[in-house]
């Protein structure tokens, strides 16, 4: 009897603990909605349509519907939303084919002896902190892009506004490329695992019909793994949309203008929240905190939708080893 009770208690305690995941999501969403309420009331839909972000930190305090805000302040998310979507879009355009290519090399082309060290490098790629990608971006990628682009595309480059210090003249292309690198291991590892799950019988059927290696990959393996591959790309997109530090370092820190070329400085919602740390403290009306919460809420909504779709696509129970969990 006591034993039975012990098991029951154990069961319900652990059940509550597992439910923490659920609770946390609701807490996050709840807090963000609650905190962004003042901004929603004061600025309404202008938040989504304006490209200007001006907190008027030195002005005086006005009241709308009893809510304090700085007189004449404007908060428009459009620049940051555009930057987020564009940089992630470029990351997908470049990163997804490259990552799927890497996955094909790992699953189909490279002999096992070579595939496992390459896989290790790829896993390491997933483990390198975001801020280090950004640092490398400043040190290597941005100067490289600048020097090669200046040679090759000088007429395009003339339209690039120069930012303070040559090193920080980064922007959309650099952000897209860094993000492409960062989402590669996610896409590649899931795609590789999905391709490796193709039944050997189907591949042998293809081989026995006289298909070349590439035809087996293209006609048999890729169709079989298609859903998971698309899901992995969606997961990569989710990661790119929310990626913060790397982009913060190479995006160029734009505000109040939209990018006109690939080389324009941009800013993303995630990076901008980091940049606004000071404003959050110095806004006497406290409105900046609320507006940033609204931006975080928007980012949360976008990444959650993308991630939910991705999870539905990447087959359930697909991850079978704990060490593969991190990339997924």
């Amino acid at each position: 009897m006591a034993r039975h009770l012990q098991d029951t208690i154990y069961k319900y305690v652990t059940m509550c603990l597992s439910g923490v995941a659920l609770a946390l999501i609701f807490i996050i969403i709840g807090v963000l909605i609650d905190s962004s309420y003042p901004a929603l009331v004061v600025y309404g839909s202008k938040f989504f349509t304006s490209i200007t972000w001006n907190a008027e930190l030195t002005g005086s305090i006005c009241y709308t519907s009893g809510i304090a805000h700085m007189c004449g302040a404007t908060f428009g998310v459009l620049v940051y939303l555009t930057g987020t979507l564009l940089s992630s879009g470029i990351a997908l355009l470049i990163g997804a084919p490259a990552a799927v290519g890497l996955a094909i090399v790992l699953a189909e082309i490279a002999p096992r002896r070579l595939a496992s060290p390459i896989s290790f490098v790829m896993e390491l790629m997933a483990g390198i902190p975001s801020v280090i990608y950004g640092f490398w971006g400043i040190l290597v990628l941005v100067p490289y892009l600048k020097s090669t682009l200046e040679v090759g595309l000088s007429h395009s480059l003339s339209s690039v506004p120069i930012f303070s210090g040559a090193v920080f003249s980064a922007g959309l292309l650099a952000s897209g490329l860094i993000l492409a690198l960062m989402i590669t291991p996610i896409i590649a590892s899931i795609s590789r695992d999905a391709m490796r799950q193709t039944p050997e019988g189907l591949k042998e059927a293809g081989r026995a019909l006289g298909l070349t290696d590439w035809e087996i990959t293209y006609k048999v393996v890729l169709p079989y793994a298609r859903t998971s591959i698309i899901g992995s790309i969606a997961l990569g997109l989710g990661r790119a949309l929310g990626e913060t530090m790397a982009v913060a370092l190479v995006c160029g820190g734009a505000s109040n203008f939209l990018p006109k070329t690939f080389f324009y400085p941009i800013n993303t919602m995630a990076a901008f929240i980091v940049f606004q740390l000071d404003a959050a403290f110095t806004d006497p009306s406290g409105m900046s905190i609320s507006v940033l919460a609204e931006m975080a809420l928007l980012l949360m909504a976008i990444t959650m939708i993308v991630n939910v779709v991705a999870r539905l696509l990447v087959r359930r129970g697909f991850v079978s080893r704990p060490e593969n969990l991190i990339q997924v």
């Binding site: 039944p199 019988g201 189907l202 042998e204 059927a205 026995a208």
Partner: peptide, 9 residues
């Protein structure tokens, strides 16, 4: 070749 397990696409 025909295999042990039927393997239609």
């Amino acid at each position: 070749m025909v295999f042990q397990k039927p393997n239609p696409f």
